[in-house]
Design a binder for these strands. Sequence first.
RNA 1: CGGGGAGUGGCGUAGCUCGGAAGCGCACCUGGCUGGGGGCCAGGGGGUCGCGGGUUCAAAUCCCGCCUCCCCGACCA
Length: 488
Amino acid sequence: MKQETEEQQDFVKEVTKMSDDFDRWYTEVVRKAELADWSGVRGMMVVRPYGWAMWEAIMRAFDDMIKESGHENWAFPLLIPREFLMKEAEHIEGFAPEVAWVTRAGGGMEELEEPLAVRPTSETIIGPLIKRYIQSHRDLPKLTNQWNSVVRWEMRSRLFLRSREFWWQEGHTFHASAQEAIDEADMILGYYRAIAEEWLAVPVLAGRKSPAETFPGAVHTLTVEGLMRDGLALQMGTSHYFGQNFARAYDISFSNKENERELCYSTSWGISTRLVGAIVMAHGDDSGLIVPPKIAPVQVVIVPIFRDDESQQKVRRFIDSWSGELKGAGIRHRVDWRDERPGDKYAHWELKGVPLRLNVGSRDADAAQVEMVDRLTRKKVALPVAGLADRLRSELDDFQRRLYERATAFQNENTYELRTLDEVIAHFRQKGGFAWTGWCGDTDEEARIKTDAGGVTIRTIDESAKVSGSCLVCGRPAKFRVSLAKAY
RNA sequence: CGGGGAGUGGCGUAGCUCGGAAGCGCACCUGGCUGGGGGCCAGGGGGUCGCGGGUUCAAAUCCCGCCUCCCCGACCA
């Protein structure tokens, strides 16, 4: 079988090249691969079935993880009374600019005596409600989660990455001790890392946020950050430890074993439909999407090739003879019987990032084989139909691994060690990626980085690292080893 | 929210300066030839020109207001 050359691989012609204009490429891929659209209501998106199916795969994976460790799903109200929202001072200060309010309701559009906030996140409604269910240390920990959407009145939107409504999970947990809550936040961060690396095939930096990037109301925020193919970092999940901040604001307390009243320690954590955008930006190429098999709505697409009714029947019978085996093996596959040319179908499914394609024609039926093409290399390989399901299973596992290795290589190639602010400025003027450096821990120095280096921020503090060297801004001994990047 | 640009069949656009019967490409429908990387021929359907108001005998075109989208900034999962 003929080997494809680099030039011949430029098959999908309807997408702007990534290298020409990444933002444009991203928007075109999201829309043409039928992931999502704008809705006509400013900043509000329509997630289409192909995009939602990816989110569903993420939901299933994460839901299994948290159920396994004893979390339960709840449904809390969409609207939050003003009075509740206002109780945690730092929290409301952080969120006030982006909260949407319901001030009128009913047939006569009567003004409400108490405006209701559309939840931007649910700490302030879950707090006052959950306290009813917490009396004693025996009621703890209370491990809640909800799958919902929230509204944040963003000024500038991008499909999946920043829209005024987005879908996510928000976990909220309440504990009898600080250590237990801290451990919870750590454990969830581990889950997020697993979702990113094992499911989305995106390697991440995991660490703590600097004070400037900490969630409003949190004691500390943990994050996983991935690198997109344009060199910008993307926050892919955050897990917050609140200490007793929210418990104090909402009087969420319990009687301990000594029958003393004590405030709970709490956490919250979330991942969102933004992760679908991460898949696009971390793996995509000039032909469109490349979807990791574990997330892919369609893992294997079968393109039948025929010229008349007779050959169509022949190919159909051939495919029918083994496609049931794929179903039995749990391989998500689809046969594309649309009345289109094979070339159209190839381009269509490449744009949609389906990992494996089987071209099946009359010749293949005669030889009891299929032609397999993978989305990463586009190499064509003939596979016998005997044992096909097992072979595809292992090909998909292999694809998942190769995709992760490719992303890891990209991250490694784009990770640097820098010592001074001048180096940082010079570096980010030319390139993107992650830059490791030392930081003294002062917020003034952190602000200097952002202003002087054009939006470069501290993405993570590596708490496990041995710290040496000096602060990139002031030159005093560094207290933290931090990663810097420009981020979405 | 500031600065810039744009809204014309599903998508991309011409026409607007200088008012006078809405055109093109793709997509779609029908038929035929085709079919292993986007093929060809013939015929056909579809548009309140973003919305509202104004000027005019006459508005896609000129004027006013609004809405939406795109690009650049400050804020963000």
